[in-house]
């Protein structure tokens, strides 16, 4: 390989790498702030709360009769930190951060779903 080959190909490769870097940065940016996404909370099919995903928040959901769940919204993701149900499935469902994802607490008839924005996938299998 000649020196001129290396200079030519190196330059082209570098330009491509920079372009790709810019592309990856552009792609990451809109996903970062979580604007347009909302945490919607339903009990028994009726919506009773809606909170923006990009504002940190800790919510106490329910009462003695309905059952209690603590919902934490932090770093543009939502999760249930505490629940007084026997199974604790809602805690084990972990964090949700993309449109369309859900946390469900069956004994309390509670559904926490992220809505708004573009749904990123049809179904998440855990």
């Amino acid at each position: 390989m000649k020196k001129k080959d290396i200079i030519l190909l190196g330059t082209v490769f570098l330009i491509a790498l920079i372009l790709l870097g810019i592309g990856l940065m552009i792609k990451k940016a809109p996903a970062g702030d979580g604007s347009g996404l909302y945490v919607c909370i339903y009990r028994d099919g009726k919506q009773f709360g809606i909170y923006p995903l990009n504002e940190d928040n800790t919510l106490q959901l329910g009462s003695e009769t309905e059952g209690r769940n603590s919902l934490v919204i932090k770093n543009r993701s939502a999760y249930v930190s505490e629940a007084d149900c026997p199974g604790q499935d809602c805690i084990h469902m972990g964090r949700i951060d993309e449109s369309g994802e859900e946390i469900i607490c069956l004994p309390h008839k509670l559904v926490i779903r992220i809505e708004g924005g573009e749904p990123s996938m049809d179904v998440t299998v855990r």
Binding site: L9, V12, F13, I15, A16, L17, I18, L19, L20, I22, G23, L24, I26, K27
Partner: peptide, 21 residues
């Protein structure tokens, strides 16, 4: 067009260099 220019184009250019070599 931006996506094509900043993703497909550089990836294909780099692939072209590597396979060409």
């Amino acid at each position: 067009l931006l996506r094509i220019l900043t993703f497909y184009l550089p990836v294909l250019v780099m692939a072209g260099i590597i396979t060409g070599l």
